[in-house]
Design a protein around this nucleic acid. Structure first.
Lengths: 392, 392
DNA sequence: TTGTAAGCGTTATCAG
DNA sequence: CTGATAACGCTTACAA
């Protein structure tokens, strides 16, 4: 039901021309007579011919495809787990309605998959840029088994790769980079031979803290960091310090609170603070977190223990994940332009592919400070957040 | 800075073996002595060798990659638009914090990108299944210009494709299918030569309506359909009718209300109903919509005109998009397992690739009726939806 | 366990 | 405008 697939040669024979001419019309290169073109077009349709990308790639030495290496995110684990307990759910055929479960609501804290939409957006932006450049895109989450084999496999089928910072061991990254150009997505780290696309981490936090200082009159702030050695986090902390220093407040030499980007660890930190409270400790005026997840974790525990946000303590995040919009209270944060990150990364990559010799550069995308309830009231905000809407 | 890339032959020479042997270790096929293997491994590292997927594909006649054709969704337009007004935002280098805009909240109705997360989830599931099968995955949104060229291009570089129903013209789809196996995602339509993966549309709505009938005692229901000729919608309507008929209520021959899957059209429909109300018309007990977007549109307008949901009219959706969880009131809906759809589609595809001759089949995934505020109160639901959570 | 040789389907380089 | 012809880098019988 799908015999030997027709080749360019078959098309040529059928159209009564040479393979070269067929190649010309496929690639819209060079001049071909009207008749030849018509005959070839017809032959292609009749034969159902589709050019082989492998053959093209081999002959032309480029694949017209870029790759995207994403980190595995939490929700992915669910997918893996599910494979064990899945026997019943999927059934061929069309059974009755009795098999449809009815549940009341869903876990309101259910993970919004794929990193709270984060990487889905990156993919979307990257796909868009690739499309604009006439390139195909391949995506992979860098999972544990066979990481090296899989990544090299991708490297072998693309003209360039976008790699999210920290997803690949250094040696693997360099191996890949010997073959194709690589663009690192976020994370400034030490100077590097590769192009980088990042966001204005420091400036974002600096501006946010400025707001807390100036508009809310908060004077005692604490930064909740990520694990040591994370470039993005370090930049954010730098922005935090800069704002303090500029306001004449002494900045700490290093973060005093450290999480791990995850909500669970954020909760633990909050529990520690609440405990401290019981032993006579005090809360700072504001807790500026390295990311939204951590901040949401704080919120969870504060709510459970009667610590009021923002009255007792202000909490802020970084990223702009969906969950931050609907938390209680909604989270003030620094929003990253995720889709733009994906898009910019691919644009930088295509530029690099076109000009391999130019020296590596870093592109910084702007961020936006988004004010919500977790840092206090702001006049323009409607009570239900629906101000300004006019659906009727 | 990236001279002629090393080939398998280079590795062979350096390791003092034949190309065949190198091929064997790369593919972990056949037997190779310890020494040979070690020498080859070392040569690979030193040379920074990466196998060419093009050459492999050409020689082996398969690419170890599957493709995914997604429809373009609303938010994508944003991306395209933005390219015009983008001059200022992106700046190389690291400017100061003054350049960071501060905004109060965001448009609460802002589109949650990529089809309300819908297709992001499909991609995630598909990527997972592909990974399990040792395949790479390439994704494309089927955009207007050059659709045919781009799709055939994809067809030429994969071993099989998953195509979301309705994204490709029939003739293009058939052209593609002559080359590689195709799996259609959702949409039952007329019998087809291709494998299909869909959800239990009819059963889901049937169960939902049963709930409205039985648990809420509603007796007058109206189905809000999608444009005519949409298989998924027709199935949902069938489920609607089946539930009514079983309850002894006469089912309409055809939907009396028709939207177009979009929120905007949902609003128009609601405006029509509200107008009718002014002219002495009445509202049905429940409006069962073909999808969440349409239902959310109804909600928008009802809220603006003082029509209370669920007191004056019950509204339900289908899909389970994120926005349905946070609408006012939260929307009762039939949830589709999006990630599972993507995963199942790729699994069916790999099975088909392995057994091209087997006849085409349809796989139906289970759905879940999720009860929320828009159809009335349900005992187990906490006021703030946080019941059962224990973050502390 | 290893090697030889013949392609795989295109593109690219030259000549017409 | 068109057509030979030689790669492109790897897999795969087949042979040793």
């Amino acid at each position: 039901m799908r015999g030997p697939v027709p080749t360019l040669r078959d098309v040529a024979e059928r159209a009564g021309v040479s393979p070269t001419t067929v190649s010309r019309v496929i690639n819209a290169s060079g001049f071909v007579s009207r008749e030849a073109r018509a005959a070839i077009r017809q032959a292609i349709d009749e034969l159902g011919y589709v050019p082989s990308a492998s053959a093209r790639g081999l002959a032309s030495r480029h694949t017209a495809m870029v790759g995207l290496c994403l980190p595995v995110v939490d929700a992915d684990t669910d997918l893996a787990d599910r494979s064990d307990r899945r026997p019943p759910p999927r059934v061929p055929g069309l059974p009755g309605a009795e098999t449809v479960p009815v549940v009341v609501d869903t876990d309101p804290e259910a993970i919004i998959s794929w990193g709270g939409m984060y990487f889905g957006e990156v993919v979307r932006g990257a796909e868009f840029a690739a499309w604009e450049a006439g390139l195909a895109i391949t995506v992979a989450m860098t999972r544990a088994p066979d990481l090296e084999a899989r990544v090299l496999n991708m490297a072998g089928r693309v003209d360039g790769m976008v790699v999210v910072s920290g997803t690949l061991p250094d040696d693997l990254l360099e191996h890949v980079a010997r073959r194709v150009p690589v663009v690192i997505l976020t994370g400034l780290g030490p100077e590097s031979a590769h192009d980088r696309v990042t966001v204005r981490n420091a400036e974002g936090v600096e501006r946010l803290v400025e707001h807390l200082l100036t508009d809310h009159g908060i004077t005692s702030l604490e930064y909740v960091a990520a694990p040591e050695g994370t470039p993005d986090d370090e930049e954010r902390f730098r922005g935090f310090c800069r704002a303090l220093t500029r306001a004449g407040i002494e900045a700490p030499a290093a973060p005093r609170l450290r999480g791990d980007w995850e909500r669970g660890r954020g909760r633990e930190i909050a529990r520690g603070l609440v405990d401290g409270l019981g032993r006579g400790g005090t809360l700072p005026g504001a807790l500026v977190c390295c990311n939204d997840n951590t901040a949401l974790g704080l919120l969870d525990v504060f709510a459970a223990h009667g610590v009021r946000v923002p009255e007792d303590v202000v909490v802020t995040g970084f990223d702009g994940v969906e969950a931050a919009r609907t938390s209680a209270p909604p989270l003030t944060t620094v929003e990253q332009p995720m889709a733009e990150l994906g898009r910019a990364a691919v644009e930088v990559l295509t530029a690099r592919i076109a000009a391999p010799a130019r020296r590596a550069a870093t592109t910084s995308l702007p961020v936006t400070v988004v004010l919500r309830g977790s840092c206090g009231a702001h006049p323009p905000v409607g009570v239900d957040g629906r101000a300004g809407e006019d659906p009727a």
